[in-house]
Nucleic acid binder design. Structure first.
Length: 861
DNA sequence: GCAAGGTC
């Protein structure tokens, strides 16, 4: 029997589609990556009995990147990234092993049906899947067609069955337009990001970002926030005047009237109007009106609307809201949360999900009434053809979901119920008055039927005192007419919800990526989220945007995305050649880049105002090995040492503190050593600023300290202070922390393992001898006389921290309890021994070095 | 270390 492989974009869709097509009679199993499932069933395909295998990928299979050697920032000129630097497709998520998985499942299959989402990205993933699977599928006979594309606009029985009945072909042009987008985004984004970062980081000490990124989505997003900031800054308040009149109603209540002129900006004119009205005793009713109006029920919920409400009403940031929604989705509480669609499919079962809510403690009454009296037809929304709107899938209580998840679920459910409720109907009445020659109006709203506002009470029309009943020709006594002086006020900072609206309007990002871009500009320290989830740009954000304005405003304008997208659409429609469009657009941006580089002084002038030059930042810490002058420690991220005399900068490990280490020097380069520490209870190690940036040995990595240095004789090196293999990680070595006394510790030089060894010892040394049982280096310990844990009066003891019965008692492994071979049963390390031949061969007691590190150390003697 | 786009 022949086999048909079918592939969807995500596991949940594979399951839904298989369920529909197999009419529920499928057998399912997990794939080799544990994430994707395979659903199998029998059926017919082009008139023959076949076995169907429905599975999925997890979004894109591949991602685009530069060849490895072009990812070395200090070796590649960013300008090369526009054309010379070759790119390659890498697996998007190596952990998922997607190519292997597809090949295992696709091996020997005769046909493939592609069920990827019906958008450009989906079309592109079709070809990623084909690239993986076609080579392992059965060879077609006599030119028979074997590759098919299913096109569907919703996950409903009819749509899916129709798609299966009318299979087409994947659209190569659409896929190519995505290839072009990927390459443009990569080349342009990385070139600008690397250039900016390197240029400014090497110049300013207090830039509060370790990465000064640029991108066609994130930069315009920042632009919106700075544009609002500029409007606030340049705002000049204006004084204006308003007439306010009070009339006395028949029930002796006073009623405030609004002036029909609203306001005037000239005091004398306002005064003139006041003079013309203030002596009037009566206000004549000129007209009355009563109109029935409706406040519309909401459209069905899509992602961006959910994110807007989450931010403005629930106080949840978009990234967090999306994570919460995803959890609710994978737990089966809501439908797929990434959709642009605000229209329920024609055959969508609205009553099913509604019935599920009929016994909910919070809204049972409303739901029961809707079910009894009949639901209202939802408003016609936009059908993007992706997924149905976000709806609740099953009832849940506050106790069940808890906290944030509950609040989001509650909103989604109330919104869903609202979409099948009636509009809110109210009466808008207004009365126009004349006082002297001036007209004033009073309006009021009274609710006729609350409709959907019953389930969305925050949307309800506020209760107001009802207007007096009066008719044209009536007159009411004037209480007073007064003139108020007011000032126009500036706009406030952009709210997240407003930003989402702007991004959506200008096509910046997608429903899935909008939260990511907003998160990016926060993480890069371009904006901060203030109360009310308003985004205030930082100095850095402002300087960047103003710099772009100055040099090339197109780099920050929202059109940067749409202009490129226009070109890409030409590829998708087959009206332009992929190579040509890509080449042309890259050329345009390459010129922009060179102009930007040449004009960077313009942005630099703005930087100088807000930030301090490297040489003027930081405090003197340790001496440079070249000029022997003090270098300055710059604490702002990324923390580093700067030698003003040599004009050199040395990066330091992040997320810890740096001190001078007893004015000790590195024997190789004469730089004074620094002591890095992750906190009082964490680990610490000495490091040489120069070696850490220019590792002296091939096996010492950049950014590491003396605890990874294989110098054979330096007293601070791994070779001298290393004890034995780490108890947890594969490659690490436990190293004595020479500064940890009197509570002595050893810490792994790769992972977080820390072992507390001895208290009350005034000296601990790593001995030249090794343990005969496990090959770890022995420790030579001098305890305090008064507090020695040793038997009798002895204060000195030499032994293995792992095997010696006295020391064993004292050692406490943090994060790694009972991982030592001594304490666990047969394991992977059994019999391998612990020692790592710290010392070069030839010294007394030393064994032949076994591993590469010590082999190298031996070589350097 | 970088972009933006999928999805987990």
């Amino acid at each position: 029997m022949k086999t048909v492989l079918m592939v969807a974009e995500k596991p949940s869709l594979a399951q839904s589609i298989a369920k529909i097509l197999s009419r529920g009679s499928m057998s399912s199993r997990k794939g080799l990556n544990g994430t994707c499932s395979v659903h199998e069933y029998s059926g017919t395909f082009s008139g023959q009995p076949v076995r169907f295998k429905m599975t999925s990928v997890c979004g894109h299979v591949m991602t685009l990147d530069f060849l490895g050697r072009y990812n070395k920032w200090d070796k590649v000129d960013p300008a090369e990234l526009f054309s010379q630097a070759p790119t390659e497709k890498k697996e998007a998520n190596p952990k998922l092993n997607m190519v292997k998985f597809l090949q295992v499942e696709g091996k020997g299959c005769d046909y493939i049906v592609l069920w990827l989402d019906c958008d450009k990205e989906g079309e592109n993933i079709c070809f990623e899947v084909l690239d993986a699977v076609l080579p392992v599928m059965s060879q077609a006979h006599g030119g028979e067609k074997t590759v098919f594309r299913a096109r569907f606009s919703s996950i409903t029985d009819t749509d899916i069955c129709n798609a299966m009945a009318r299979l087409g072909e994947p659209d190569h042009n659409e896929a190519l337009s995505v290839d072009a987008r990927q390459e443009l985004d990569l080349r342009i984004g990385c070139a600008f990001t690397r250039f900016q970062t390197k240029y400014f980081q090497g110049k300013y000490g207090n830039l509060d970002s370790s990465l000064i990124s640029f991108g066609p989505c994130q930069t315009p997003t920042l632009g919106f926030c700075v544009e609002r900031h500029d409007r606030i800054q340049s705002f000049k308040p204006e004084t204006y005047w308003v007439l306010q009149a009070k009339v006395i109603t028949d029930k002796d209540r006073s009623l405030l009237l609004d002036w029909d002129r609203v306001r005037v900006f000239d005091r004398e004119i306002a005064q003139m109007f006041l003079n013309m009205t203030k002596l009037e005793k009566e206000a004549q009713v000129e007209a009355t009106s009563r109109k029935e109006k409706a406040k519309q029920r909401p459209l069905a919920l899509n992602t961006v609307e959910m994110l807007r409400v989450a931010s403005s009403s629930l106080g949840m940031g978009p990234q967090h809201a999306m994570q919460t929604a995803e959890r609710l989705y994978t737990q089966g509480y809501i439908s797929y949360p990434r959709t642009e669609t605000t229209h329920y499919p024609e055959n969508f079962d609205l009553k099913g999900p509604l019935r599920q809510q009929a016994n909910h403690p919070y809204w049972a009454d409303t739901v029961k009434r809707l079910l009894a009296e009949g639901i209202n037809r939802p408003r016609k929304g936009h059908d993007a053809g992706d997924h149905p709107p976000i709806t609740p899938m099953r009832s849940a209580t506050e106790a069940e979901l808890g906290g944030e998840a509950w609040r989001l679920y509650e909103y989604i459910t109330r919104h869903f119920i609202a979409t099948v409720s009636h509009d809110c109907r109210y009466l808008q009445s207004s009365v126009s008055f004349r006082i002297g020659p001036e007209r004033f109006t009073c309006t009021g709203k009274t609710v006729i039927s609350p409709g959907f506002t019953e389930i969305m009470p925050w949307q309800s029309i506020p209760l107001e005192e009802s207007l007096p009943t009066c008719q044209r020709g009536d007159s009411l006594a004037v209480g007073e007419v007064k003139m108020l002086e007011k000032q126009t006020s500036p706009p406030d900072y952009l709210t997240e919800a407003e930003l989402i609206t702007l991004m959506e309007k200008h096509g910046i990002g997608t429903d899935a990526s909008i939260p990511v871009h907003i998160n990016n500009i926060c993480q890069r320290n371009y904006v901060v989220v203030e109360s009310g989830r308003r985004l205030r740009p930082t100095n850095l954000g402002i300087v960047l945007v103003h710099g772009y304005y100055k040099i090339d405003a197109e780099l920050v304008l929202p059109t940067i995305r749409s202009a490129v997208e226009k070109q890409l659409n030409l590829i998708a429609q087959g009206r332009a050649d992929y190579r040509q469009v890509l080449g042309h657009t890259l050329d345009v941006f390459k010129r922009k880049f060179h102009y930007f580089v040449d004009s960077i002084a313009g942005m630099d002038e703005l930087m100088e105002v807000s930030f301090s030059p490297l040489a003027a930042t930081g405090k003197p810490l340790s001496r440079c090995g070249k000029c022997h002058r003090f270098m300055k420690y710059i604490q702002a991220k990324p923390s580093r040492l700067h030698c003003a005399h040599c004009d050199e900068t040395y990066s330091l490990p992040q997320n810890g503190t740096i001190k001078l280490y007893k004015e000790l020097r590195c024997p190789l380069d004469d730089f004074e050593l620094a002591l890095w520490s992750s906190g009082s209870r964490g680990k610490s190690y000495p490091l040489c600023p120069y070696c850490s940036n220019h590792p002296p040995f091939r096996d010492m990595k950049k950014g590491t300290g003396c605890n990874e240095c294989t110098h054979p004789t330096c007293q601070h090196s791994l070779s001298m202070l290393g004890i034995g293999q780490c108890v947890e990680c594969e490659s690490g070595v436990l190293v004595l922390d020479p500064t940890s006394g009197p509570k002595w510790r050893v810490a792994c030089n790769r992972c977080n393992v820390v072992a507390h060894c001895f208290e009350n010892a005034h000296r601990v040394r790593v001995s030249a001898d090794t343990c005969s049982a496990c090959e770890a280096a022995l420790l030579d310990v001098d305890f305090n006389k008064a507090k020695s844990p040793l038997p009798g009066d002895s204060t000195q003891h030499t032994g293995c921290v792992f095997c010696d019965p006295i020391f064993q008692e004292l050692v406490e492994l943090k994060h790694a309890a009972s991982c030592h071979p001594m304490h666990r049963g047969p394991g992977r390390r059994q019999g391998r021994g612990r020692g790592r031949g710290r010392r070069p061969a030839g010294k007394p007691g030393a064994r032949r070095p076994k591993d590469k590190m010590s082999a190298l150390a031996a070589y350097f003697v």
